[in-house]
């Protein structure tokens, strides 16, 4: 492999990894607070891209307005999902919540098939995202740096929210102990809703960027990114926002590099990502950034 193609692959890996990371954060935030793996999160990614698609093609919004519209509506769906499907089950055994998450996921996918149609749709990129750029002999399209930049800005913003705002502090407190935090006068419902709101916004942005990178959207497009992002969240240490970012980037780069170094194994890319997950969990069960937590009884 030449020096140039290494950097070409690295750039591709980072942009794919940033998307995994954006989506992984949603998983990890919800898990941190509720100990729930929200399997419907991948479907929010799909909804985000569809809302952006319809914003442009049906309501004739300019691309930026369509993207804001899509993020807003997806966040709304995320909040409703929490309120209707998860909140009433919070007091019950964890398995009920988990089952509800799987159910919501199937519900959203099948609703999307009925409402949006099963045929894949072509997502059109804003013109400035479609420009070819050359740096030396590396060729990439302008969306690559944009994806990386947008992700970076969102990561920094999210860290600031979590560490330096009241709502963020409440979220961190909830992740330690929901009941005690509630007793201290924190509005548990509002804080959990806020976490879902943030996660859904990031999922929508992830979905829009995903559709820009891979301009074909279909009702099941969220399944694989969702699973991969879940792997990324576990790799990084589930419950840990910084870990989700690192896990996402790592997974993206490793996936691309594996195929780049071993082209003959390219059909088994997913097998490799999941094998890495198993290996890592064997040696570091809490993930890269995860801490060992005493099991709460």
């Amino acid at each position: 492999m030449t020096f140039d193609s290494f950097f070409q692959n690295l750039a591709n890996g980072i942009s794919l990894g940033s998307l995994y990371a954006l989506i992984a954060i949603g998983y990890t935030m919800v898990y941190g607070i509720l100990r729930l793996i929200n399997f419907a999160h991948g479907d929010l990614v799909m909804l985000g891209s569809y809302f952006a698609f319809y914003g442009v093609s049906m309501f004739f919004l300019p691309w930026w307005a369509a993207f804001i519209f899509a993020v807003g509506v997806t966040a709304g769906v995320g909040v409703v999902m929490e309120k209707v499907a998860y909140r009433p089950l919070r007091e019950f055994p964890r398995i009920n919540l988990f089952t509800a998450a799987v159910a919501v996921s199937f519900l959203l996918e099948n609703l999307a098939i009925v409402i949006f149609g099963g045929r894949p749709k072509a997502f059109s990129r804003p013109p400035f995202m479609d420009k070819m750029l050359n740096i030396g002999s590396i060729t990439f399209v302008s969306y690559t740096p944009i994806i990386i930049a947008v992700s970076l800005v969102l990561f920094v913003g999210l860290i600031l929210i979590i560490n330096h705002t009241k709502a963020g502090t409440a979220m961190r407190a909830l992740s330690k102990d929901i009941e005690t935090t509630g007793l201290m006068g924190v509005n548990t419902n509002k804080t959990i809703m806020f976490a879902f709101l943030l996660g859904s916004c990031l999922a929508a942005v992830g979905g829009i960027l995903w559709a820009i990178k891979f301009p074909q959207i279909n009702p099941l497009m969220g399944v694989m990114p969702g699973l991969k992002a879940f792997v990324a969240a576990v790799l990084g240490g589930i419950g840990n926002v910084g870990g989700a970012m690192i896990g996402g980037l790592l997974l993206g780069i490793v996936e691309i590099m594996l195929v780049a170094f071993f082209p003959s194994l390219s059909g088994y890319r997913d097998a490799f990502s999941f094998a890495i997950l198993i290996l890592l969990l064997l040696f570091r069960p809490t993930g890269i950034m995860g801490e060992v937590q005493p099991e709460k009884v």
Binding site: N9, S264, R269
Partner: peptide
């Protein structure tokens, strides 16, 4: 000069294409 593969649901072919 090159024989590579991908799977159902794959959307990123950049690695195959760089080969």
């Amino acid at each position: 000069v090159s024989e590579t593969s991908y799977q159902d649901g794959d959307q990123d072919f950049t690695a195959q294409l760089s080969d």
